[in-house]
Computed example of a mutant assay.
Amino acid sequence: MGVGLQVLPLAITMMAGPQIMSAIVLVTTGRAVRVSLAFLSGILLATAAGVAIARELAGLLGSALHAGGPHSSGFGKAIQIGLIVLLALLALKNYLGRKTAQPPKWLGTLLSASPATGFKTGLLVILSMPSDVLIMLTVGANLEHHNAGFGAALPFLAATLLVAALPLLLYLAFHRKAVRAMPAVRDWMNTHSWLVNIIVCAIFITLVATGA
């Protein structure tokens, strides 16, 4: 897969879960536009930095694996299988705990977020989420595999930013309806966070299994 292909599933997975829930919460605040723009700035910076670092790590790891000879492909396959098993177990854990699942407590604090808090949240929801780290590593490995520079990841960055901006764009385009609808969407995602996490795991298992 080139980074330009299948980029939308990767971008959606990047923002699924607390990430998009944060974006929805922020458009229900008193300073929706300013705080949301700060949040998007954090998302873009964290994703760009993460992909750049992942590209360098993939280059270093790729050199080590090439030096390992014929066993390197087996090592890569083992990592792929390990990721699939780990994600399947995580999905199972979310399903079994669905009745007691609760959204992260910090989401509630975003209702009074300032632009600075929005920016920090944008950074943290990308850099502190294991699923996002895995996706950025996947993109970095793809760049290395195709001997591509950082510029080849721009479609992925743009798609991730677009998905992150959807709540704000809907807010701007359909202000009155969005003001009424967003709290309901936020509440649904809060009560169904376990389902969102399972969907994220399923998407990423598919991407790993198909060599995305």
Results as ranks from 00 to 15, higher is better:
Leu154Trp: 07
Leu83Trp: 07
Ile79Cys: 12
Leu26Gln: 08
Ser63Val: 00
Ala159Leu: 10
Ala38Glu: 06
Ile53Tyr: 00
Ile20Thr: 13
Ser112Val: 11
Gln80Pro: 00
Lys120Met: 13
Ile203Trp: 05
His71Arg: 07
Val208Glu: 11
Thr109Met: 14
Leu124Met: 15
Tyr171Arg: 15
Ser114Ala: 12
Leu26Ala: 08
Phe39Gly: 01
Ile53Ser: 00
Gly68Lys: 01
Gly59Glu: 01
Leu170Gln: 05
Val139His: 01
Gly97Glu: 12
Lys99His: 14
Gly108Lys: 14
Met136Asp: 04
Ala178Gln: 05
Met182Ala: 15
Ile135Trp: 07
Thr191Phe: 05
Leu45Met: 11
Phe75Gly: 03
Ala49Glu: 00
Val208Gln: 06
Pro130Arg: 04
Leu45Thr: 13
Val139Tyr: 01
Ile203Ser: 01
Met136Ala: 10
Phe39Gln: 09
Pro104Gln: 14
Lys93Leu: 06
Leu86Ser: 14
Phe174Ala: 15
Gly97Met: 05
Gly151Gln: 07
Thr206Asn: 11
Gly151Glu: 02
Val51Thr: 12
Ala209Pro: 06
Thr210Gln: 15
Thr206Gln: 10
Leu10Tyr: 08
Phe150Cys: 03
His71Met: 11
Ile198Trp: 04
Val3Ile: 15
Met136Tyr: 07
Ala165Asp: 09
Thr28Gln: 09
Gly76Ala: 15
Ala209Leu: 12
Ile53Gly: 01
Met21Phe: 06
Ile79Pro: 01
Ala58Thr: 02
Val33Ser: 01
Phe119Ser: 04
Leu143Val: 05
Ala46Val: 01
Leu157Tyr: 09
Ile203Gly: 04
Arg176Ile: 03
Pro103Gln: 14
Gly68Thr: 02
Gly74Leu: 13
Gly42Asn: 08
Leu127Gly: 11
Phe174Lys: 13
Leu161His: 03
Ala64Trp: 04
Leu195Gly: 08
Ala52Cys: 02
Gly149Arg: 05
Met14Tyr: 11
Leu107Phe: 13
Trp188Gly: 07
Ala165Ile: 08
Arg55Trp: 10
Thr100Val: 14
Ser73Ile: 08
Phe75Asp: 01
Phe204Ile: 13
Leu86Gln: 04
Gly62Lys: 03
Arg34Ser: 15
Leu111Tyr: 13
Pro18Trp: 03
Ala88Lys: 13
Leu143Ile: 03
Lys177Ser: 12
Glu144Thr: 01
Tyr95Phe: 15
Leu111Asp: 08
Leu37Trp: 07
Ala113Leu: 05
Ala159Tyr: 07
Met14Pro: 02
Leu207His: 06
Ala91Tyr: 02
Phe204Asn: 10
Gly97Thr: 08
Ile203Tyr: 06
Lys120Pro: 00
Phe204Thr: 12
Ser63Gly: 14
Phe150Met: 15
Met182Gln: 08
Val51Cys: 05
Lys105Val: 13
Trp188His: 10
Ile43Met: 04
Gly69Ser: 06
Val3Ser: 10
Gly4Thr: 09
Thr47Val: 14
Ile20Met: 14
Val35Arg: 12
Leu207Ser: 05
Ala54Glu: 02
Thr47Gln: 01
Ile43Trp: 10
